[in-house]
Amino acid sequence: MTSTLTRPPSLYISHGAPNLILYDSDTRDFWRSLGANVPRPSAILIMSAHFETARPTFEKGAHPGMIYDFGGFEPELYQMAYPAPGAPALAQQAFELARAANLDAALSEGRGYDHGTWIPLKVMFPHADIPVATLSVQPRENGAHHFALGRALSPLRDEGVLIIGSGSATHNLRAFFGGEDTPPWALTFNEWLHDRIEAGDAAAIAAWEQGPDALRNHPTPEHYLPLPFAFGAAGPGTKGKRLHHAIVGPISLDTYGFS
């Protein structure tokens, strides 16, 4: 992926813990490099695992504030801000595309940037000068629904919009806080995911529950579902590529690009 491209890819980013932004790591370095090398977007549309609703909801506020939706972390995190402007026109356009695809979409106004949004974007685009519209995940819906939602919004990429799904490729917090080293079941699912994505197997990514130890890696689905969304946003016939690989205990920090 180089800056010679003019049409932004769609991305799936494993956003990790909020304090990832504070310390040197390969993942933070990769995010910084990714932001510098991706074609500069006209705007960003990002689905965060931490914005949950029953139906696809697009935030149309012009000046989103900050949401510090975490506790017990370093005090300096609660002083950080990401003052990127909202993207009301993009939210409206995305809403209309979703409705045209017979998806029961909605608009919201007044919701700020949660950490699934502002943590990676603050590293990738630190000048906060690209408008951002946020989109909810629907944990009660399946992978096929999220893939269809991404597909409905894929025309936005032709207008220079960077579409991002922000979650975590594996996400068992109980195992993480239990202090486990990376267990075999996390490695197996993570590599199954990698193989299916790079094979372009959209059906397997949508029916993710059939993957090895899928529900052990994702006891709840909200961190997974932004992945089929990003896959769908790439358009038909796409194969993804793993752009970054890291895993901490049972939590994968992998990033995928779809172009």
Results as ranks from 00 to 15, higher is better:
residue 181 D to W: 00
residue 248 V to G: 00
residue 233 A to E: 09
residue 185 W to A: 06
residue 193 L to G: 06
residue 204 A to V: 11
residue 222 E to N: 06
residue 191 E to D: 15
residue 200 G to I: 08
residue 195 D to S: 14
residue 230 A to Y: 04
residue 235 G to S: 13
residue 183 P to K: 03
residue 247 I to Q: 15
residue 194 H to S: 11
residue 229 F to T: 07
residue 198 E to A: 12
residue 203 A to R: 15
residue 239 K to S: 13
residue 183 P to V: 02
residue 217 N to R: 01
residue 226 P to I: 01
residue 229 F to G: 04
residue 194 H to N: 08
residue 248 V to R: 07
residue 249 G to V: 02
residue 226 P to R: 05
residue 247 I to E: 11
residue 190 N to I: 03
residue 216 R to S: 05
residue 223 H to F: 01
residue 215 L to K: 15
residue 179 G to E: 00
residue 221 P to Q: 03
residue 189 F to M: 10
residue 239 K to F: 06
residue 239 K to P: 01
residue 201 D to G: 09
residue 230 A to I: 02
residue 246 A to W: 00
residue 242 R to V: 12
residue 237 G to Y: 13
residue 201 D to S: 11
residue 181 D to Q: 08
residue 238 T to R: 14
residue 219 P to W: 03
residue 199 A to C: 09
residue 231 F to Y: 15
residue 184 P to T: 11
residue 231 F to R: 04
residue 201 D to W: 12
residue 176 F to V: 00
residue 231 F to H: 10
residue 219 P to L: 02
residue 229 F to D: 03
residue 186 A to G: 09
residue 178 G to A: 09
residue 232 G to F: 07
residue 244 H to V: 03
residue 190 N to W: 00
residue 230 A to H: 02
residue 229 F to R: 01
residue 247 I to S: 08
residue 183 P to D: 04
residue 234 A to G: 15
residue 212 P to Y: 04
residue 219 P to Q: 02
residue 186 A to F: 03
residue 238 T to F: 05
residue 179 G to W: 00
residue 177 F to P: 00
residue 240 G to C: 11
residue 205 I to W: 10
residue 243 L to T: 08
residue 245 H to Q: 14
residue 232 G to H: 05
residue 220 T to W: 01
residue 202 A to K: 09
residue 195 D to K: 12
residue 198 E to H: 12
residue 233 A to R: 02
residue 212 P to G: 10
residue 236 P to K: 13
residue 185 W to T: 05
residue 243 L to M: 14
residue 245 H to S: 14
residue 236 P to G: 10
residue 226 P to T: 01
residue 249 G to Q: 01
residue 237 G to A: 11
residue 178 G to R: 00
residue 234 A to R: 06
residue 221 P to W: 03
residue 188 T to L: 10
residue 193 L to P: 02
residue 178 G to H: 01
